[in-house]
Design a protein around this nucleic acid. Sequence first.
DNA 1: AGAGGAATATCT
DNA 2: AGATATTCCTCT
Length: 718
Amino acid sequence: MPSSSFPAPSKFPLGPPAAACGRGHSAGPAPPAAGTMKSAEEEHYSYVSSGLSSGLPLSTAHPSLPAPCHDLQTSNPVITVLPSAGHPSGYGSTVDSGSAGYFLPSGGARPNGAPTLESPRIEITSYLGLHHGSNPFFHDAEVEDTVPGARRAPSTATLPLPSLEAYRDPTCLSPASSLSSRSCNSEASSYESNYSYPYASPQTSPWQSPCVSPKTTEPEDGFPRGLGACTLLASPRHSPSTSPRTSVTEESWLGAHGSRPSSPCNKRKYGLNGRHASCSPHPSPTPSPQGSPRVSVTDDTWLDESTQFTSSAIVAAINALSTDTSLDLGEGVPVKARKTTLEHTAAMAFKVEPAGEDPGTTPPAAAFSPSDFPAFQHIRKGAFCDQYLSVPQASCPWVKPKPLSPASYMSPSLPALDWQLPPHSGPYELRIEVQPKSHHRAHYETEGSRGAVKASAGGHPIVQLHGYLENEPLTLQLFIGTADDRLLRPHAFYQVHRITGKTVSTTSHETILSNTKVLEILLLPENHMRAIIDCAGILKLRNSDIELRKGETDIGRKNTRVRLVFRVHIPQPGGRTLSLQVASNPIECSQRSAQELPLVEKQSTDSYLVVGGRKMVLTGHNFMQDSKVIFVEKAPDGHHVWEMEAKTDRELCKPNSLVVEIPPFRNQRITSPVQVSFYVCNGKRKRSQYQPFTYLPANGNAVFLTLTADTERLRCFF
DNA sequence: AGAGGAATATCT
DNA sequence: AGATATTCCTCT
């Protein structure tokens, strides 16, 4: 089994498409402009194309689809995909066996396979309500492929869409869908997306239309892969004509882009107007409540991964779903406004909301089986793509399609990237043997690569699949996922960046699922199904670009932590496929992390003359350009304290080191011992920035300055 | 390419 | 004013 292939990405690089799917469908952000939206139905129709294309399996391809599972089990459900062809039912429905279940995010499939939603059409109502219907999260793991037809039903659902628009700026309205970062993601999963499509998430619909630019629709793109779906079709809906946005061409987009909007709002507006004219109008003064569902996650918030599967996990999941969509309770405060941190709390609580939105969660997807709507699959991409604002490719270099690697194959039915999968099932366990460093500065498209993610102890992360005894190599997929407290999903603001070169020992192949770039790495039996991940860097996309995408509800500001997400699809007897997934520890991707509190690990000497003006070298971490060293003298009486800033010799400073000149002590006339200490501060920050640095000598004693009788020569013993 | 640092630009 | 986000520069 080689690999899985991803559906072809759509043309858009950025594409929200995928995301769109996920989210949109599910939760649906409410489309701001209703007008723009097409009816859900339409969407469906549009999709029509044939089913998925099949992937091309290489050796083992499995067409099967993922199935959601219900069980939450802590463990994780596994998803198996059945190849079956045919029937629709399966897709989300059945649960399969055992193991696995995995959660679907929003989808609503039912265990039995029946999609939760049934009606074919999607109603897009915007309201909050939502429902998701059933909990989308859990579905049976296995998914069978069913016939396309079968599945379709799912559609049903009304997607609750919150009013998405509201979400960000009233004016701007973004598409809303909330899903956070994932929004895109959702799409990412191609399959699912497909499935989801039918639903048209609220968000989707509305936006889509506008979005759909003709081009998007085009298949082109180049991505032949899998699903090509995108190509799909230009579904009618997409037809440019239809959509207002048509007018907006990339160019226009570019133009807009070109000059980055300074503020998000502007951008958005721009986007809206331009693209979605319709939207603009809408901007209801009142932001729709729902607007953005997603609460943005802030740094603060994230939880451990572990939680995800626990009961709390469930809750979390729910929250997650809701989150995105969430309408804020309040009102339509733009998501951004909200900002992260807080939100959690409150937000979460109620989040449950409409499911749909969350891309990440997107349960909906699960619900549908591709089979049901073959066409959809394609659609999804296409649709999605369209829906999102297309980003100029230029801006999204990473989007470029690449040739399939041999290993890859497209399987139409692999679980969407925002589906929650277990790390182990039966004899198999996908494990991260060596975790990545907790910090990796991502690079912007305007910069050169900043290299591969490394392991904290040097070297690179290592992933291994245990329990696999076959002789066939498998494809390990890697994408950048979120690290917040909501369900794991592709990160909208970061993409994995493939690194090649002589220093890279692991070859990889790049594909795009939905809006998510995925790196495919072979796991070879001869290597014990173990791979050294030295080919994965992290690309940061501009917040403003991503936030403009339709359906994207996450905000990028302060959303700088990610996780490396690894997946493997193991063919099972009977044609099913077992999908396992494991995520790394969180990785802080901003430069600022390096600006955190300075830490002195050691100083150049432990004893030397300090007569005014001796240089001392401090080595540690997080020293910055403006780091200052403040010496503090405390008189014997303990009441007289003087602080003095040491001069820093920048020319002699090297990374992670500070060369400072110890200032002459004020109390030179004091003949008794004077306690001296110093601390290092970065930037202009004051309190929080100042990190009283307690210098502790090796023996654990405090720092004392012993003044000799002659006082001219002071000896400092640390 | 791969880093590290920092100037600027943008929010909050 | 501060905190963050992006873009630039420089160096190896």
